[in-house]
């Protein structure tokens, strides 16, 4: 009933995206804290490193994780606090995937050209 069906995939993706986001958050706080060393400090060097395309692609994955985790989190809240949420949890999960895609497409249209260097001004 449960294993391999929508409910388990929803959980696995929520867990994976959550752990990934938490680890990214720790790294993100650490690198942004380098601004404390001032304009002559190591901040710009580190940022230039992160501006390489593999990290920009990684940032797209981080944003995808944010959007999925947010919408599936709403699904969890609906399952916990409404009397119909659990009954329609499968439909809600397809809604989560749909909403993630709908939000993701304009983000890709904005960010991918920037990474390819064909955006406004580069």
């Amino acid at each position: 009933m449960y294993r391999g069906r929508e409910g388990q995939w929803a959980f696995v993706l929520h867990r994976l995206s959550g752990v990934a986001l938490a680890l990214y958050l720790l790294l993100h706080v650490l690198d942004i804290s380098l601004v404390m060393y001032g304009p002559e400090g190591p901040f710009n060097t580190f940022l230039a490193f992160y501006h390489q395309w593999p990290f920009r692609v990684g940032l797209i994955l981080v944003m995808a994780a944010v959007v999925y985790h947010a919408f599936n989190g709403l699904r969890i809240i609906l399952m916990d606090f409404t009397d119909w949420g659990t009954k329609y949890h499968r439909q809600l999960w397809y809604g989560v995937l749909g909403a993630t895609t709908v939000v993701g497409i304009p983000v890709l249209l904005k960010v991918v050209p920037e990474i390819l260097g064909v955006g406004h001004g580069g």
Binding site: I32, V35, G38, P39, G41, F43, N44, L47, H51, R56, L59, M63, V66, A70, V107, K110, V111, E114, I115, G119
Partner: peptide, 24 residues
């Protein structure tokens, strides 16, 4: 909070151009 954060720094701005001046 996070959607706003991502909007300001990744969509309203090119994240590839973020530097010390931007963050300061």
């Amino acid at each position: 909070l996070v959607f706003g954060h991502v909007f300001f720094n990744n969509l309203a701005f090119n994240a590839g151009e973020i530097d010390y001046t931007y963050v300061a």
